[in-house]
Amino acid sequence: MEFIISGVVQAIFLLASGDSSTWSAVAVTLKVSTCSMLMSMAAGLPCGFLIGYFDFRGKRALRTVLDTMLALPTVFIGLLVYAFISNQGPLGEFNLLFSLGGIAVGQTLLAFPIVTALTAVTIEAIDPQLKLTLISLGAGKKNILATCLWEVRFGILAAAVTAYGRVMTEVGISMMVGGNIKWHTRTITTAIALETGKGMFANGIALGVVLITIAFGVNLSLSFLRKQ
């Protein structure tokens, strides 16, 4: 128990004293999760829109596959990505193993179903009146598409934040693909795993507090954006 309290105290100390290894882990985490989030948005938004907007055969089957992908364990994705980007894997020549790029690929796979599913749900939830309203105001097809997307911007923002939270807090992919290399691919979560393995529970708690603080900051800025 006592290590929780000392962990919180230490978190404040680590951040305030500018502890370089802590800040390196924070920077790596932010870098790689932002990149993964943006890539998963770039891929997931159009897919989610197509699934949510159109009715087609096999849509329900596709949704089931997508929902299953939501439950993919990160270590499994990590293993899968490792198999591909390992030097002997089909993508070995890109030298992605033990790099942030490799982690980003894995995390993108992790976040893609989240973004796609949430976008699809958001698009499906669009008021059917919206299209009729836009038509009756003289909107053409392109106007309708653009306006619909802008109308659901909060839903899409929520998808982005959910994806961000998911990739920021995962440990399996970062550990497996990134290798937990200090100063390079050590994220907050792999650092927690390491500290815990070393029995430095208080350090682990401290890093956990840092992670929660960042997550809180992200959500806070989102609710600020919403008010704008």
């Binding site: 870098k31 790689v32 030298n95 033990f98 790099s99 942030l100 790029g101 980003a104 390079h184």
Partner: peptide
């Protein structure tokens, strides 16, 4: 990210 990859 690209810097990091180059220096890796």
């Amino acid at each position: 990210l690209s810097n990091a990859m180059a220096s890796e």
